[in-house]
Amino acid sequence: MDRDVVETVSLRWLRRLVIAVFLLITVFPFYYMLVLSVRPIERLLLDPGALVVGFGELTVATYAEVLKATDDGGQGFLTFIRNSGLVAVAATVLTLLVAIPGAYAVARLRFFGRRQVDFLFLAVYLFPSIVIAIPLFVVFTRAGLRGSLFGLVLVYISQTLPVSVYMLKNYFETIPVSLEESAAIDGAGRLGIIRRVSLPLAMPSIMAVALYDFMIAWNEFLFALLFLVDKPNRWTVSLGLSLLADGVEVPKTVLMAGSVVLTLPIVILFFASERLLTEGLTSGAEKG
C-alpha cells in the first residue's frame, strides 16, 4: 500500500471520529443541563453519573420554583424574562436605526472622515469593556441612571454598534451602484433610494445583524451586574441566575432549570436562523 492510500483511508475514519467527538463536546453540556433540570436533587446526589432521567423521577418542580414570583416563594424569573426581552428588543431596534444609515454612508457616500471611521471600531474592539465600565458606572451613579433599564440599553447599543455597522457596510457594498443610480434618474431622493432600493435588498443582512444584536444583549452579564444589582425587580435573566447561585441553599437542579430558561430562547432563535447568521457574520471574512 502506498502512502496516499494509507492516509486517505485512515483520515476518512479519523474524520468521522473527530466529528463525533466535536458533537459530543458541544452538545453534551446542553443535554446535561436539560437532564439535571428535570431530576429531583435527592436523586442526583444518589447517582450523579446517570445520563437519562428515570421515568418515575421526572419533575418540573424546579421550573415552577424558578418561574414563580418571589411573593409565591419562587425566584421570579418571569419578571427577569420580561426585563431581558424588553432590553434586548429595544437595544436591537435602536441599534438598527442608528447602524443602517451609518453603514450606508460609510459604504456609499464620500464625506470627510470616512476612512477614519474604521479607527473607532478598532478602539471599541481593543478597549476592554471593563475600561469603559468604570466611568459609565460613575456617570450613571451621578445621573441616577444606575438601576434603570434605559441606561443598560444605551450601553448595549454602543457595544453592538461597531460590528453591526461593519457587517451592514460589507453588505451594502455588494449591492450594485447602478440600481441606485437608476432610481436616482427616476427622481428618487437619497432617503427614497435607501428606503425603496437599498433596504429591501439588504434585508437578509439586516435580519442577521438584528439576531446578532439580540443575542449579545440577551446574553450580556457584566454591565447588567454593574448597573442593576441593587434593583431586584429590574434584573435580567443572566444577572438573576448568577445571583441565584450566590444565594443560600438553592439546589443545583434549580440552577440548571434557570440555565435552561436562559438558554432556550437563544438556541431556538439560533437554530431557526442558523444559515442566515453564519453567512451574515462571515461575509467579507474572505478578504482576511
Partner: peptide, 22 residues
C-alpha cells in the same frame, strides 16, 4: 458629503458618548 455626515452622525455620537468619552 453632507448627506454622508448626517447619516453617520448618530453612529458617531453614540460611539463617542458611550465609548470614546469613557
Amino acid at each position: 458629503s453632507r448627506a454622508g455626515l448626517a447619516l453617520v452622525a448618530p453612529t458617531l455620537l453614540v460611539t463617542i458618548a458611550v465609548i470614546g468619552i469613557p
